[in-house]
Design a protein around this nucleic acid. Structure first.
Lengths: 340, 340
DNA sequence: CTGAAAGCGCTAACAC
DNA sequence: GTGTTAGCGCTTTCAG
């Protein structure tokens, strides 16, 4: 059973609209593209013809003639795609899609295979898109940065290396968020505040460490109670065990993400300590663990949908030739629950 | 700071390749499109020229000339997009994207505003895509079905109404999955098995009810212990309370999704009953609640990534003119944990 | 098996 | 303001 490319009533062309409105194709084009230099009456006539005929401009023809595609690629590394179910990432996509829905741009999702990154690169450079949004899950990998000189690109997450300083990116203000988390613990009267952070080659791990340290320093508190995890629950468990085993007093803990906080919960409980009685805990991310945890976790909420929206907005502005800051930092918000 | 549409070294055209290979544009086109009717030597020469020049065909031009866009739209109703963070949905997107990555098709995500559905409709009908994938979260809403006669469409989830019988769709085998869940409870020796299902105007709610009922009937068991929820945890809580309040003996429960099972857990516990001691519980979906629940939830796993992949595959086959079944049902799998 | 020629539907100078 | 005229880069008959 072959699916014929049945035309039905074939799609009307600009030419048909022109004929019906009694004007030239150029004029129809002007109206469609919102040129101001058209008489109101003509605009009206053309508009009528358009809706009568149910005309929809053909994107391919338009692109070919205008040398603009009106397509924005959202590039997702395959490894990230594997954890697509990660709500943080899904929210970014959502934000991008929502934000682009109000524009003339079309969203093209590209999964870049890590085994064959050139395919994506070629696609992007082949003049098939007007710009690209690149997200590399929590990692700051700007390996597409080189393309930035030819194709407008906006990254999600700040680059790891300052060398890639040229890139445009949108990120959550991890430093401020972490500092706020630490401040909160301090306000709660905690003085021996430990940190479980992530790998220091990942911006999120590094920046959350920095924010925490700055806050403690500002209050003249000791900031050497540090352990490292890899953002997984089990690494949080291990890290907390090490912290506890060290024998130094601890009455507060900031975990660089909620998953590690979850692990820390277990370690704290297995040590017979209470939350927040003995140790007040604050996490980061505000993922779904926090709410269902016992006690519910105080955590730093990051605007993941907002991140996607901001990325799209920055790119669209760049494409419009409007001035945009290379760096866009989104504020976080401390969600206070019962763990602190 | 305006972003110039700098050309850099402008993208090579087919013409350039033709010149370099010493053949006509038509021949290059044939090679690019894998026509068999070209001499091996010529193919080699053209291939060389292509890679030398780093040629990438221009999609717009190709579309315009061939009247094919090589674009597949993935339509997501805005309300669904709001719950984009729903891992089930995110997985479908992932499946679609992965599956399409191996084809010549490009994935175009479209968020269809419910307030202005015509915009999407026009876009789809405007010859801008070769086909569409429509997902309406758990709902079977095939309001785009009418377009199916003009544009090849594949739906995720079976249609609510049999009238829309024409549509192609891919769905999880809810009936079989639920029957399996009920069978499992029966095998565990449960005889008074209750059901909390979803709205009966949603295929998932209806089909999961059907599967459960058939299994009980097959074993001559009572199948009147039924309450309805709306797939939310709180509705599950309420439903379970009603079930318990009725005073009839219950030793097993099948909840039509894990969220409602979560609510049921609370109701069971607040009634001072144990899981699975007093009541064995089985859910459906295998979302992230199941693993972290106490006790971990036995549930029916549905292949959400597979669903997306299947949708893409079915559409691509249709577009290739290959025969495809209108209905594709994906098998579920019972994941036995400690709640049963 | 390969080349020539004619567009695909639209935009963008350039005239009027 | 509006029409005329060229193409944008590619596919596709149709000859040869």
């Amino acid at each position: 059973m072959t699916t014929e490319q049945v035309d039905g009533r074939s799609v009307p062309t600009l030419e048909a609209v022109a004929a019906r409105a009694g004007v030239s194709r150029a004029t129809v084009s002007r109206v469609v593209n919102g040129s101001t230099k058209v008489t109101p009456e003509v605009v009206a006539a053309v508009t009528r013809a358009i809706s009568d005929l149910n005309y929809v401009p053909n994107r391919a023809a338009r692109s070919l003639a205008s040398r603009r595609t009106q397509v924005i690629a959202l590039v997702v590394p395959e490894s990230t795609a594997k954890v697509f179910a990660d709500p943080f990432f899904a929210s970014i996509v959502q934000g991008v899609a929502l934000s682009l829905a109000d524009t003339e741009y079309t969203l093209n999702m590209v999964i870049s295979s890590e085994t064959n990154p050139d395919k994506t690169r070629r696609y992007l450079m082949g003049g098939n898109v007007d710009g690209a949004l690149v997200v590399s899950h929590h990692s700051g990998d700007h390996s597409y940065a080189q393309l930035g000189s030819t194709l407008p690109i906006v990254f999600g997450g700040r680059p790891v290396s300052e060398a890639q300083h040229e890139s445009y990116f949108v990120d959550v203000d991890n430093v401020a968020g972490s500092a706020g988390a630490a401040e909160h613990l301090i306000e709660r009267g905690r003085r021996n505040i430990a940190l479980i952070t992530g790998p220091q080659d990942m911006p999120a791990g590094l920046d959350r460490y920095t924010g925490w340290r700055r806050a403690l320093e500002a209050h003249g508190l000791d900031h050497t109670l540090v352990e490292y995890g890899d953002f997984s629950p089990s690494s949080g468990l291990e890290a907390m065990r090490r912290l506890l085993a060290a024998g130094r007093p601890i009455d507060g803990l900031f975990a660089a993400n909620d998953q590690m906080a979850a692990g820390a919960y277990s370690a704290i409980h297995e040590a017979g300590l209470s939350i927040p009685g003995d140790i007040a805990v604050v996490g980061f991310d505000d993922d779904n663990f926090g709410l269902t945890a016992t006690p519910p976790l105080t955590t730093v909420h990051q605007p993941s949908i907002g991140l996607g929206q901001a990325m799209a907005r920055v790119l669209v502005r760049r494409l419009a030739g409007e001035p945009v800051d290379r760096v866009t930092l989104l504020p976080t918000e401390l969600v206070v629950r019962q763990s602190s």
